[in-house]
Simulated scan of single mutants.
Amino acid sequence: MADPQEPGKVTGYRHHPQDRIDLVNRIKAIENELGFLVAELNARDDIDKRALALGRTHLQTGFMWTVRAVFQPESNL
Rank of each mutant, 00 (worst) to 15 (best):
M1K: 08
A2M: 06
D3G: 10
P4E: 12
Q5N: 13
E6W: 05
E6T: 06
E6R: 00
E6I: 07
P7M: 00
P7V: 03
G8E: 05
G8C: 09
K9V: 00
V10K: 02
Y13V: 00
H15Y: 04
H15Q: 03
H16C: 13
P17K: 13
P17W: 11
P17S: 10
Q18T: 08
D19W: 11
D19Y: 13
D19M: 13
R20P: 13
R20A: 14
D22I: 15
N25W: 11
N25C: 15
R26H: 15
K28S: 14
I30K: 01
E31K: 06
E31Y: 05
N32R: 12
N32V: 10
E33F: 01
L34E: 04
F36S: 11
L37C: 05
V38I: 02
A39H: 15
A39Y: 14
A39I: 12
E40S: 00
L41S: 09
L41P: 03
N42M: 13
N42G: 13
A43S: 04
A43P: 03
A43H: 08
A43W: 01
R44Q: 10
R44M: 08
R44V: 01
R44L: 00
R44I: 00
D45F: 05
D46W: 07
D48G: 05
D48V: 09
R50W: 12
A51S: 09
L54F: 11
G55H: 12
R56M: 06
T57P: 08
H58W: 07
H58S: 06
H58N: 11
H58G: 03
H58C: 09
Q60N: 06
Q60C: 06
Q60M: 02
T61Y: 02
T61L: 02
G62Y: 01
G62P: 08
G62R: 00
F63H: 03
M64R: 10
M64I: 09
W65S: 12
W65A: 09
T66H: 04
V67K: 05
V67R: 04
R68Y: 02
A69S: 12
V70W: 06
V70N: 08
F71W: 08
F71Q: 04
Q72K: 12
P73A: 02
P73S: 07
E74Y: 12
E74G: 13
S75R: 00
S75N: 09
S75H: 00
N76R: 04
N76M: 06
N76K: 03
L77D: 08
L77T: 01
